[in-house]
Design a protein around this nucleic acid. Structure first.
Lengths: 250, 250
DNA sequence: AAAGAATGTGTAATATGTACACTAATATGC
DNA sequence: GCATATTAGTGTACATATTACACATTCTTT
């Protein structure tokens, strides 16, 4: 019984990978570190877990403390525990990820995090610790999840156009999708409410606005429906314009 | 820098969920605990991680020490860290899982594990700690994985019949599959080598034996092939016999 | 040689996925 | 106000995949 105290003990932390979507681009929330190690470097918002705190609770608390984000649903992804991942000693970290609507939240970084800022996922590199690797794992999870759960709607504002939705899927899947097929597929799922409104102030034909029908989704789920969106099989899709420039019959 | 030592530290462990398949039944490897807490109870083979040991390495070592299994490929699934999951103090555990061919290994339990034995997954309950929950999470992962990776072959002996393969999939997916459609699908993937041998000593028409073609699989993967096996949509499939007992035209 | 038990096989109907090109609606610049 | 630029929105034919379904075959046992 007492031997228990003799077992090696390590510090442990949680790190949060928060994805958002803005300006047609997938973003991740990073903080500028105000503490050693890696002071002044960008990293994921993460910190130590308290002794009598569950992991999920810690992730929520730490996120709020560092960035000001509240009530964010976080999902565990993977645990990183390489011996030398932290310069001060053995630290095991549990990575969490989440998807949020950027416009719904205000960032209020604490002093530990000097700044909190959204960065384009595609441009992020050179983060503190092994955070590049953690980000990669979470992005991979997102890619995986997007095909079997309607996660896209978490990232968009409540009202969105089908083109915005498509661009989001293209950003996550890192591929291009056929407009007509994408629309047909999405609309056939019966998960969107057509708001009978259109965009305003755009210099082109305004698009219809839609809303995700969460109740309908729950209902369909309980009927055994499963959301499925496949990655297109062709790697590089040629545009229609390009393809039609060399027709067989002139 | 010195403050680092002030952060709360917890003990941490790895737990392994090893699946096997035998007698048409999905099994999990459990040990009978020879140590407190839960001495004499069944639980997952798991133990403490060393200070200068990576998590994956620890999982492999612990598995071997407790059960005698060597060279098993383990994959991280989830981390469990509820405050009260261990009666002696705060212990965070990282769960790993693996699939093995039961007949290929000999169990050699250590003294810490008084016994190591295969149990039918469907019958396991009342394990030590939160191991019921960990098992459930790993089974869920297996179900998920089976649809996108040819994991079934890891569980079968090198030579197997299509019926055995089908039964395995049925056990994992907890559903029944149509024989002809299953065969058509599997064979069309071009992942099996027909060994031109048949079963011996069975009291019925002997089945052909097949082998998984791992090289072909790697080859197909690099060509962008993706293994996909859907769960059948109908929950309860009626058997043909039953269905044909009430034909429209006599 | 008859009965029992599991193997092995094909086809038609339906559903899903894919490729692809033009018209419609708005804002802006002239 | 008219031409231009820009994005929205729409349909169909073809190929592929999924589903439902029944019976002859080959072996052992009695």
């Amino acid at each position: 019984m007492n031997e228990f105290n003799e077992y090696f003990k390590s510090a442990f932390t949680v790190d949060n990978v928060i994805f958002g979507f803005d300006e047609g681009d997938l973003k991740v929330l990073l903080i500028k570190r105000g503490e050693d190690p890696y002071r002044g470097k960008w990293g994921l918002p993460g910190y130590f877990v308290y002794p009598n705190e569950d992991l999920d609770t810690a992730a929520i608390r730490v996120l709020e403390e560092l960035t000001g984000l509240r009530n964010v649903f976080l999902e565990q992804v993977k645990t990183f525990g390489s011996v030398n991942r932290h310069p001060f000693g053995r630290v095991i970290t549990v990575a969490y990820f989440s998807l949020i609507k950027i416009s719904h939240y205000t960032l209020q970084p604490s002093s530990i995090a000097r700044k909190a800022k959204w960065h384009s996922v595609s441009e992020v590199t050179g983060l503190a610790f092994d955070h590049d690797e953690i980000l990669k794992a979470c992005f991979h999870r997102l890619k995986w999840l997007v095909r079997s759960r309607p996660v896209g709607f978490e990232l968009l504002p409540p009202k969105f156009t089908l083109t915005e939705l498509q661009h989001l899927y293209e950003a996550i899947l890192e591929t291009s999708l056929d407009k007509r097929n994408f629309r047909k597929k999405i609309l056939s799922m019966d998960l969107l409410i057509d708001l009978d409104e259109t965009q305003e102030g755009v210099a082109h034909r305004p698009a219809r606005l839609y809303q995700f029908d969460r109740n309908r989704y729950e209902e369909l789920l309980s009927e055994g429906f499963s959301f499925e969106l496949k990655e297109s099989k062709k790697k590089e899709r040629t545009t229609e314009r390009a393809a039609s420039s060399s027709p067989q019959t002139a």
